[in-house]
Design a protein around this nucleic acid. Structure first.
Lengths: 207, 207
DNA sequence: ACCTGAACACCGTTCAAGT
DNA sequence: ACCTGAACACCGTTCAAGT
C-alpha cells in the first residue's frame, strides 16, 4: 500500500498492458484495480467509467499508428504499397486493433493513409469525384480485408468445412480449382493480388 | 405457471425474437427465462450454456439465408449481381447478422454463393488456381465490404470528423475531391463500382 | 482533489433436490 | 427425462465517507 498517486496515464498504460498480454476479455475494472494496486472505485475518478476507458484506449491505439510512406515507381504501385503497409501495421497489435474493430473505429485508422492516396490518384491523372471514388474504393477494400482476416482467425474451423464442400463434382470437373478452394488461403498473396486488380481498374484512363 | 413443455426450438425461437427486437445485448439467460416463463436453469438443460445457444442461433441464421440467382448477360455482370444479392440479404437481418459477424462466421454465409461464382468464372474462361483466386478475391471483397459498412454504422460520428480534415488545402487544390471526401459515402454506389472494377480486372484475358 | 469500502443490481453457471 | 431454487463467483457502478 501507500503507493504513488494514480494518474490517468498510468490507468491507460496498465489497461493496455492487460489487453496486450491476456486479451480484451481480461480487461475488467476489478482486475485492472488489482493490477494497479488501488481500489476499483479510484479508477472511476480518473477515467469516468469502463466505456470511456475503452474509448481512450482505442483512441491512443489509433493515434500511435505510424505514418505511411508510399514506395514504388508508378502511382499504382505506390497505392498498393500504402495498402500493404497499413495491413502490416494493423496486424502488429492484434488485440488492441481488435478493440478498435469492436468499437467501430477501424476506418479511423485509415485516415492518415488517405492523404497519401489522394496524392497518388492525382499523380495518376484522376480529379474530383472520380478521384474521391478511387480513394474510397481502396480504403473500403483494405479495411474490409483486414476485417475479414480477423473474422477468419476467430473462426478457424468452418463447421461443414470448405474441404468436403469442394469435391470435384461441385467444381464442374476443374480439379485444380477444387484443390485450390479446399486448401488454405494465402492471405498475403490474395490481398496483394486483389488490391492490384482493383487499383488497375480504378486508375485506368477509360471512364 | 404450468406451461407447456419447453423445447430446444422454442428456446431458439424466443432467443431470436429477443435479439430481433432489442438487439444482441438483450439476450441474457435471465431475460430469456423470463420471456419463456421458466426458470433460468431449465434453459441449460436444452441448450447447454450461453455459448452453445449463440452458436445454434447463428447456425440457424446462416442456414436460413436464401439461395442466390445470378442475373445479367455477361459473366462479369452475373458475378456483380451475386455480390449485390448477397449484400442485400445480409442487410435484411442486421442484428442476427451482427452476431454472425461477432462469432467470426461471416464467411460461412458466403458459401452458397461460391458455387454460383465458380460457374461464372468458368464461363469467363478461367480455370484452376486462377479461377479459385478470382472467386476468393470476390468473396473477400464482398464480405469485407459488409463488415466495413457494419463498422461504419456502429461509429456514426467520426471524432475528428472527416469533414474538417478535408479542407481544400489537404486536397491539393482539388475542391471537387475535397467536397466528395468530406460528404457522406454512397455505400450502394461505391459497392457496385468497386465490385465491377475488381471483377473487370480479374476476368480480363491477360495474365 | 483524490481515494476508500460497502452496497446494489446485474451477470453465467453449478448442483442437489424434486417430479 | 425434465424442471426448480439456492448458492457461487463474477461483473460495472453509485455513493457517502474519509483525507
Amino acid at each position: 500500500m501507500a503507493r504513488t498517486a494514480l494518474t490517468r496515464e498510468e490507468v491507460l498504460d496498465t489497461a493496455a498492458g492487460l489487453v496486450r498480454q491476456h486479451g480484451p476479455e481480461a480487461l475488467t475494472m476489478r482486475k485492472l484495480a488489482a493490477e494497479l494496486g488501488t481500489a476499483v472505485t479510484s479508477i472511476y475518478w480518473h477515467v469516468g467509467n469502463r466505456e470511456s476507458l475503452l474509448d481512450a484506449l482505442v483512441e491512443r491505439t489509433v493515434a500511435d499508428l505510424g505514418a505511411i510512406r508510399p514506395r514504388g515507381a508508378s502511382p499504382a504501385e505506390r497505392v498498393v504499397s500504402v495498402a500493404r503497409a497499413l495491413r502490416r501495421q494493423l496486424r502488429a497489435h492484434p488485440h488492441l486493433v481488435a478493440m478498435v474493430h469492436e468499437r467501430g473505429l477501424t476506418e479511423r485508422m485509415f485516415l492518415p493513409a488517405q492523404r497519401a492516396l489522394v496524392r497518388e490518384v492525382h499523380a495518376a491523372g484522376l480529379r474530383g469525384a472520380r478521384a474521391a471514388g478511387a480513394v474510397r474504393a481502396v480504403q473500403f477494400q483494405v479495411v474490409g480485408y483486414v476485417l475479414v482476416e480477423r473474422n477468419r482467425e476467430r473462426a478457424p474451423v468452418q463447421r461443414p468445412g470448405e474441404e468436403e464442400l469442394w469435391d470435384t463434382a461441385a467444381a464442374e470437373g476443374d480439379e485444380a480449382l477444387a484443390r485450390a478452394l479446399a486448401g488454405p488461403v494465402d492471405c498475403d498473396a490474395l490481398f496483394t493480388a486483389s488490391v492490384r486488380a482493383l487499383v488497375k481498374s480504378l486508375l485506368e484512363p477509360g471512364a
